[in-house]
Design a protein around this nucleic acid. Sequence first.
DNA 1: GATTTGATTGTTGGT
DNA 2: ACCAACAATCAAATC
Length: 173
Amino acid sequence: MKTAKGKGAAKASKEALKPTDDRKVGKRKAATVADKSSKQKAKKEKRAKKDPNKPKRPPSAFFVFLEEFRKTFKKENPNVSSVAAVGKAGGEKWKSMTSAEKAPYEAKASKKKDEYGKLMNAYNKKQSAAADGNAESDRSKSEVNDEDDEATGEEGEEEEEEEEEEEEDDDDD
DNA sequence: GATTTGATTGTTGGT
DNA sequence: ACCAACAATCAAATC
């Protein structure tokens, strides 16, 4: 099952979403993707630069399951070390599993998502604080610290020096 | 880079 | 200006 690679055609039918009447918001196709349909979306904005402390996306339920599945698969197939093989086998089994079996994985993924939200919260604060009150270092620090509640009890002290430069790195083709 | 699926983010169009 | 919906990118593991 290829699911159309997910790149060119995404998940395909996403129907079931019924707006009020017939919103048909549109066939806006893609964001002027026409150019680099293969990679990236458009030459518009490149979503963020290199963020030093940007929290990575939490693993989805499937990934959580995969993590465990990898061990199992490798155990039964020590000869196969290809990630592709595990991916296929994992995906196949994943679909074979029922919601009940996926439940624990989803639950874990949900928790990861929760932590991710907290991390993003702190991350956003830093971004705002760094961009806004950068002039006064001590002052901005205090503000950030103040706003930083015991969300996750993070003890990481990240110093944000002046870091405001918009670099537009365009991938070379 | 190959592969898996899910999720989050980003962009755009419409109201 | 905000919401809704779609489209694309990204998350890891190993050779």
